[in-house]
Design a protein around this nucleic acid. Sequence first.
DNA 1: GATGAATGAGGTTTCATTCAT
DNA 2: AATGAATGAAACCTCATTCAT
Lengths: 207, 207, 207, 207
Amino acid sequence: MKNTPLSRRERQKQRQRREIISTALALFSEKGYHNVSMHEIAEKAEFAIGTLYKFFSNKEDLYKAIVTEQSEKFHETMDTALAAADDEIEQLQNYIRAKNTIFQENLAFVRLYVAESRGVSYNLKAGLDVEMRGKYYDLLSKLAAVFETGMENRRFKKIADPYHLAVAFDSTIISFHLLWLDAPEKSAFPDNPDEILNIFFKGLINQ
Amino acid sequence: MKNTPLSRRERQKQRQRREIISTALALFSEKGYHNVSMHEIAEKAEFAIGTLYKFFSNKEDLYKAIVTEQSEKFHETMDTALAAADDEIEQLQNYIRAKNTIFQENLAFVRLYVAESRGVSYNLKAGLDVEMRGKYYDLLSKLAAVFETGMENRRFKKIADPYHLAVAFDSTIISFHLLWLDAPEKSAFPDNPDEILNIFFKGLINQ
Amino acid sequence: MKNTPLSRRERQKQRQRREIISTALALFSEKGYHNVSMHEIAEKAEFAIGTLYKFFSNKEDLYKAIVTEQSEKFHETMDTALAAADDEIEQLQNYIRAKNTIFQENLAFVRLYVAESRGVSYNLKAGLDVEMRGKYYDLLSKLAAVFETGMENRRFKKIADPYHLAVAFDSTIISFHLLWLDAPEKSAFPDNPDEILNIFFKGLINQ
Amino acid sequence: MKNTPLSRRERQKQRQRREIISTALALFSEKGYHNVSMHEIAEKAEFAIGTLYKFFSNKEDLYKAIVTEQSEKFHETMDTALAAADDEIEQLQNYIRAKNTIFQENLAFVRLYVAESRGVSYNLKAGLDVEMRGKYYDLLSKLAAVFETGMENRRFKKIADPYHLAVAFDSTIISFHLLWLDAPEKSAFPDNPDEILNIFFKGLINQ
DNA sequence: GATGAATGAGGTTTCATTCAT
DNA sequence: AATGAATGAAACCTCATTCAT
């Protein structure tokens, strides 16, 4: 991460930027974009309102910075997870585990991410939206490729279109997460990937 | 509760109420809760602003009314679908078909519903949230019961916890819908339930 | 002025509009556009801030309304003055008198008008400026026509370009007004047009 | 007052001060006082914002410095022009020429000066205003003295009060300048003083 | 002495809600 | 009972000014 040694000034600036982003993320995630005022963010982050505007030219810009930054982190992690194995089943296990980790470490962001990538995002004047969805579709395609390769390998049966499988697989993971978030008592956090893998691997029908 | 036929006055009032709700739904769904003003709703519905406040005591109340009303309609339909067959596979087919129909007939609401049921509802100062989730969990339980019964019947293999299966099944359907909504060119609308059923029924692994 | 009989509502609205314009004019004229806040106008006019925005969609709009309205009144009066006589000297006398009257009756506006039509108006995002200057040049042209006709009649000598004469004549009147406004003790208000006429009519040089 | 040669330090300071003033003048003149920020001035002048405040205690102070400095230069030039001849007609010619030169060499300032001397100075919390007007009236008095002397000499006819003549004469010159500034195509720049002199010297009326 | 990051008062504008008619 | 004019709290954002380094 350390590329060029930053001046003390520069490091201080980066720290402040992260401070603002982190405060804003917490508030947005808790109350929603429209229910958080710039004053509130400034106050909680212990900066003057003007300082926020030195870092982000307006509220939307701050929001986009949060989403972009985290989304990049997320997609990097997921890509790495898929690339860390050759075996398709291992790849799927990695995928689940990576998503679990991200989910647990960024609970605040998860809400925003879900809102943006799957839910309804009128808040943003397009652009961000489009970009994020693009990345999400890329990830789904990579996941689909795992299924496809597995089918070519004869490790997997050709039970459905690989892209559809990817959609089903990913949405199932997310659902488990959200379910747990909503009502931790209703289901254990799917720490062990096997429960999900079973659903897709074993086949429900008794022939 | 009072089943006496409604007076003309009363019927007129109901009609107006529905008119407002329908206009508000269209606008909220198109632009998002925070980007629609009460004035805009009043104008499009051709009522005076004061009239809106005769029916709904504030903006949030109107929003809740929309969500509640539609959500009731939705859950009734889904319950009926599950109850319309004894055979578990038929029940699952009905479930998919009912969800497809609702999705297509209430595209405007779907956006709101997804936002609400998926855990991303900052808009509401809690309360509604809880109630809707409760209903949603009830539905998931009924779906889980189908899987459970199927397992007891030996129609289904015990590959996973029935409730988890319900979550996976339902979220997969929703994902297909949202995927199609987002990018109709990327996937056909899942009119035929078989694609989804295959994913869960056949089992991916080649033994 | 009374074209169609206005409803009481409509008349009330017009009265309020005039009230706002008049308050804003007084404040702008006293302190300058940038030194008057919308809150200040609202308070002095005894309206809520929101009410101002019902009448004028923003601060600039209010400003333009003032300037446009008064400028129209001004140019109408001046046109009428020139048209009210055939005799060129009478026309010039009328011109002076009309300007005197307007000046005295609209002292507050005079400052703004001068600022806009002659001074430097960065305040406004063009448009208004252009239009007002256009009208002012039209008036100067009409005044020039009086000089030209007079020359053709042989009532006037061809001592200079008629348009230049018009400019000199008009600016002299304005200067007298402003001089008086600034320092009433330094010069009597030029109620009697003869002093100005003498300057242009009699010729300074003793041959 | 201290005429000792300035230290290098002192000279450097003067140079910086002039640099700031000149940059600010350019910006104020281009966009207007209220549409130029101290940051913008600092940046364009290549000083830190704090440095500006070392030279001028606030924005208004900077503005006053510009106006005062230029106005002194202006009045010196005009005084010199009037003093450079004994013959009244020559004096008037000099007056016109000097004003032309100043106008052309200080177009940026002219805009500000006009705003200030013409009575439309809301920008300043009084004070400057009064001083500048005083100087302007002094100049007018000197010009009036030329007319008065000319009348006593019998070079000029007593067609009007000398002070009034001075006002008319000066305002006519300014008008020609502004007219040219506004719409160069509508009138040639009055390089040759004769056109203006004719207007006042020859007398319009044919007897 | 110079710097420029930080401040926060104050500006414009929106919009949910009230209430006299 | 319906209306919609009026309200004003509160949002976003700018920028003159200060002061620690």
